[in-house]
């Protein structure tokens, strides 16, 4: 499921003017950085409960993604090409959390515009128009399908909503607001 964060953040940075995926990818490559706020709602089907959290994020091309939870718990996760780990190292974390590092690497690849990496895992369908578009991603691998039913992204100028639906009925919805492109400058 951690894959989803890459996906989400990867597409987040794509200005949604494009109507074919090549354009989308091209624009993805143009984005130097983006920041904004998010509200994340996770619906747990078997408990019929929503877990809601909010915070802000920054993405700097080729450098890092910072995903900062503010409520209900403060947590800052930084993904860099070289490494990625929770900023507050959890007790018991061996410091060698390779799975997370792999995700960080993938995430950065995505943000850096490696659209092929997504296409390896998903078949992509684009619909709508430039002001209100939607991309549906369906997992290709059976193993992935067992866990993930569908991913949808929707937006206009930028991505505004991301929705992941898992095979067991849980959903994760992220709404973005206050999106600001960053100048292609160093932090």
């Amino acid at each position: 499921m951690r894959l989803f964060v890459l996906l989400m953040l990867g597409l987040l940075s794509s200005p949604a003017l494009a109507f074919d995926l090549a354009d989308l990818q091209h624009r993805l490559g143009d984005t130097q950085g983006l920041s904004g706020r998010f509200v994340q709602t996770r619906h747990l089907a078997d408990l019929d409960t929503d877990l809601e959290s909010r915070g802000h994020f920054t993405y700097q091309r080729g450098k890092r993604v910072v995903w900062a939870l503010e409520q209900p718990v403060e947590d800052r996760q930084v993904f860099t090409p070289a490494d990625a780990r929770a900023a507050d190292d959890a007790p018991g974390d061996t410091g060698d959390d390779r799975r997370r590092r792999q995700i960080a690497a993938l995430l950065l690849n995505l943000l850096d515009g490696d659209w092929q990496a997504l296409e390896r895992r998903f078949s992509l369908t684009l619909s709508g128009d430039a002001t209100a578009w939607q991309v549906a991603l369906a997992p290709r691998q059976a193993a992935l399908r067992e866990r993930l039913a569908e991913v949808t992204l929707a937006g206009g100028r930028y991505v505004e909503r991301l929705r992941l639906e898992t095979a067991d009925g849980d959903t994760l919805t992220v709404r973005f607001s206050d999106l600001q492109p960053l100048a292609g400058s160093d932090p």
């Binding site: 499921m1 951690r2 894959l3 994340q40 718990v73 996760q77 507050d88």
Partner: peptide, 21 residues
């Protein structure tokens, strides 16, 4: 007790795959 905070972060992390039960 020290494991509660990371578990919380995990529950709300976008990449996590929380299984509260």
């Amino acid at each position: 007790t020290s494991l509660v905070q990371p578990a919380l972060a995990r529950l709300f992390s976008p990449g996590g795959d929380p299984e509260p039960v």
